[in-house]
Each structure stands twice: as C-alpha cells, then as structure tokens.
Design a binder for these strands. Structure first.
Length: 478
RNA sequence: UCCUAAGUAGCUCAGCUGGUUAGAGCAUCUGACUGUUAAUCAGAGGGUCCCUGGUUCGAGCCCAGGCUUGGGAGCCA
C-alpha cells in the first residue's frame, strides 16, 4: 500500500505545495466540495477540497458519512476560516462504501445511550476517540510509574481455584456438559471430572498471588482483567474490569498511602501532558452539557481545573473514627437528611457519607484509614486496639472508592485466628499461610480500579463509556 | 436485587380528558445552489407506538404481567 501521511502531522505542517496522501473516514461531505476526513490520529479532521465539476457524479455520490477513502493531493494553506491547511484533491479512491441510509452515525450529536448500543461504531465519534486515547495513555502511565520505581509487572492467574478470597461473586469456569453433569454419590456436581479436577473461577483479585511475588521480588504490581459476578447495575460497576494491584514488601500503611497518592498524581499529570486536546474537548463537552442544568447543579471547576486541583493538594488523611465524628456532627446528620443516620461507631459508610466527606466537607480526595475489622477483609493487619485494621480507602469526588488497600497481616497466629473467626478455610489457602511461616515480613498493597480512574480523568459519568466493550448484567454484546 | 423514570420514524423528542388518516426537527432520497464549517432552499419517502394479555363501541394514552434502558441505592474497585 502507498505510504500515507497522518492527519495529525499534516495539520501542523507548513510545507505548502507538497504532494501528500491521506486515508481515513469521511465525517461530513459539504457543498459537494468539502470533505472532513478523520484517520484517528488526532481529534481534528483535515479538510479535503474536491474539484467536483471535473469529477464523475457516480464517484461523488459514493462519498458519504462513514465511508473510507484514500486521497492524494497538494497540501495548501486554507482559503476558508476554521482550518489552517487543506488538501486539494487530485486523486480520490473509495476504499469502503458506507450506505448512508443504513449507517447509524450521523454528523450530529448522539446520546451516549445510543452509542453504547452501537459500541462497535462509537470509536468513530470524537468523544470516544478522546476517551480511549486517554485510557491508553493512563494505562501506559501506570506501567511507566511502576517501571521507574523498580516494580516488577506480574501476571497473576485469570483462572483460579481458590474460592476463599471473599471479594465477591465469581464466574464459574468449566468444560462440564450441562446436559449431562457428572455427579458424586451424594448427588453433587463432581468437579473431579472437570478440566482442572476441581471447581474453578475467574479471578476477582490478583492480590493474594501478588503477595507471593512481593515476598521475593520486593515490589510487584499486577494490571489485568478482573471479574465480578455481582448483579450490580450502577454507573461505577462492571462485571469485567481492569485492576492495578501493587504489593510492596517491608512497607506499612503510611508507605502504602504515599505510593497510592504518588501513583494517582503521576498518571493524572501524565494524561494532562499527553492528552491536552482530548481533555480540552471533553472539558468543553461537559460545559456544553451543564448549560442545560440549573446554576446550583453546575460544577465549580471545569474538568481541567478539577484534575489540576487534585494534583495541587494533598489528599486529606483521617481515620474511620475521625470520619464518624465529623459525620455525626454534620448538618445532614443532625437534620436527618441522610438516609442512613450515623449514630455510633462500627457501621460501614454509605455512598452518601463518602460523598459528604469528599464533596462537601473536605472538597478534595480523602484517604480513610483504620476501619473496624468487622467490615473489612481477613487479611488486613490488626491494630493494637483489637478493634480496627490497617485498611485504607481513597475516595474521589464523583467516583467514590477509587482505591481500596491495606497493610497485610504478616503474623501467622493472628491471621489464623481471624480466618477462623470469619470461616475462611485454611486448607485452600495453605500457600498464603506459608508466606507467614517462611520469612514473613510487613507488607502492604492496594487495588486501583482502572475504569474508575479513567472515569475521573475523562469526566465521563458512566463506567460503561470508558471501556471499549462493557460487560454488565444482561449484556455481553460485541 | 430494591426504589424511580422512560421505551412512539434511522436519531432526538411532542402527542391534550381514551375518539377520524400518529406529528416536528435532524438524518435519508430527489432537485436547485456551490468556499462550506452540523452549508442553505424546495419537495418526497419512512411507523410491530417495547412485548403479551385485559378493560372499552373504540387504546400510543387506562389496567396487569414481562423485557430493555436511564438515574439513585445496595455490593464493590
């Protein structure tokens, strides 16, 4: 194929008069003369100018919104307003026709719901071009951050046999014939005859395996798909999502918080630097959308200001107990405006409480630590008070919990006690306990929901719009 | 899973108290125009009113059940 010029480069090229070739998809075709062409290399289109009087009608008719073309012509300074350069076409080839009557996308604004139903085509829109470019850059920044710090990227298994992590409902993995399932003498499904010789699931977390890596390599992280079979229907849950889970040996909760805050700030800064156009586009999109809202509901900061604010301020760090005191004394609690009134210590915080702390009280990201052990996982390190564990949740405005983590319990006897109390079977996790028998050490880690990060940075509001092909209850299309 | 709102043309939506042949803008098609920026002007075509029952002389509209979607909650990252 002929070498093509990328539109991104041509738009800033001032070598007028040179012959160039571009290939892309037609966004609009105006006036029988002007084609707005996109090749995905940037958000902007390049304008192609056709000498329509000397082109066959049959060819012009085939230039429709969505079709793909190859154009060779001269790069020139534009006569019209709105763009600096354009291409005077000398030769046009239709690479792929696009029936205008059937193509769902029109040169107009579409609802996100409609585009979600057409997820195979939504990449063609400006909004999703921006979202998925930012997603890419954030993913790259995560690797860059950890690599610079000497972390080892560890691939933890996607298929796991341990059902003991308690992180949520799991998807079963099996090759058994549903119409003829092998049974044991007592009538239960006999997984001994299944592919792995035991019941297997898709992973809900790579943490336990990452701990194994950290206790030898020192600092590791995972970045992979994670599956939760919960019937959750919200704007911040997916059945299949990507999670980043660093695990660090010889680290306590303080180190863990520092690492998490550094990571978030690094990748947000990276996105601002690398995706200025994309963030700018999404910022304006949000401003446009907010014009329809009453003044009181509009954001105080635009998208870029919000991200910058996050970089410029330290995250507010406080304990669960301190948060409860603030909430107890808060106006919405006193006036009974909360759906769940805070009247004592020990209850889990509801979304409305987290939102109050982040969006009303502190007005910045918050790290809550030292939760009651009853509402947290078995592997979190117990404090001396016997009541709380060294957990941390990082709460972001509009997102809620973006990171959940803890210092891990490295003391074998205390860990076993806790597992007994919570009915966690020890035999299945013998390998996890072995870590505490053979050279145990303090260590800590956390899980960062990648899509929630992308939500925050793009300013999108539904998590289904920041992953190319969302998986959620009743939907596995594409 | 719970609460709540919605489902009408390709898209976004209107449709009165239940009453003739279900409308608009955009898109599409045809023609005109041709340096446009979501081009403009004129005309045309386009409907399983989400599905299944029910009430009624008559249902897009009322009732019951179901499906799907949006928003909120729970669960969580």
């Amino acid at each position: 194929m002929i070498k093509r010029n990328k539109i991104k480069n041509l738009l800033v090229d001032s070598e007028y008069g040179k012959k160039v070739t571009v290939m892309g998809w037609v966004k609009t075709f105006r006036n029988n003369r002007f084609v707005a062409l996109s090749d995905g290399s940037c958000m902007q289109n390049i304008q192609i100018v056709l000498d329509y009087e000397n082109l066959p009608d049959a060819l012009l008719k085939r230039i429709t919104t969505g079709c793909s073309i190859s154009v060779t012509g001269l790069l020139v300074q534009s006569i019209g307003k709105g763009q600096n350069v354009e291409i005077n076409a000398e030769n046009i080839e239709i690479l792929g026709d696009c029936d205008a009557e059937k193509f769902p996308l029109q040169p107009k604004k579409h609802s996100l719901e409609f585009l979600r139903e057409n997820a195979h085509l939504r990449f063609r829109t400006n909004t999703f071009n921006a979202v998925f470019k930012i997603r890419h850059v954030l993913g790259f920044a995560v690797h860059d951050f950890f690599n610079k710090r000497g972390f080892v990227y560890m691939h933890t298994p996607i298929v796991t046999a341990s059902d003991a992590e308690g992180a949520g409902e799991m998807f079963k993995v099996t090759t058994l014939d549903f119409d003829n399932t092998p049974r044991t003498d007592t009538g239960e499904v006999n997984f001994k005859e299944d592919f792995f010789g035991r019941a297997a699931n898709l992973t809900v977390s790579g943490q336990l395996e990452a701990e194994l890596g950290a206790m030898a390599l020192g600092e590791v992280y995972t970045f992979g798909p994670t599956f939760r079979a919960e019937n959750s229907n919200t704007t911040r849950h997916l059945a299949e999502f990507w999670m980043i889970e660093p695990e660090v040996a010889f680290a306590d909760l303080e180190d863990n918080m520092n690492l998490a805050e550094d990571l978030l700030k690094y990748v947000i800064q990276y996105a601002i630097t690398q995706c200025g156009d994309e963030i700018d586009f999404l910022k304006n999109r949000l401003l446009e959308e907010e014009k329809n809202k009453p003044q009181a509901e509009r954001s105080e900061l635009d998208l870029l200001q919000k991200l910058q604010f996050c970089l410029d301020n330290n995250f507010e760090r406080l304990t669960y107990t301190e948060a409860i005191d603030i909430l107890k004394a808060s106006k919405p609690n006193q006036k009974k405006q909360f759906k769940y009134i805070i009247d004592g210590w020990g209850a889990d915080l509801q979304s409305e409480h987290e939102r109050f702390l982040v969006e009303k009280h502190f007005k910045k990201p918050v790290i809550l630590t030292d939760y009651p052990k009853e509402i947290k996982s078995f592997y979190m390190r117990q404090n001396e008070d016997g009541k709380t564990v060294r957990a941390m949740d990082i709460l972001f405005p509009g997102i809620g919990e973006i990171i959940g983590g803890s210092q891990r319990e490295e003391r074998l006897d205390i860990l076993i006690n806790r597992m007994n109390e919570m009915n966690i079977p020890q035999d299945e996790l013998y390998w996890y306990l072995d870590l505490r028998k053979f050279g145990t050490a303090p260590h800590a880690g956390f899980g960062l929901g990648f899509e929630r990060l992308v939500l925050f940075v793009t300013g999108m509001t539904n998590i289904r719009d920041v992953i190319p092909f969302p998986r959620f209850p009743k939907n596995a299309e594409f």
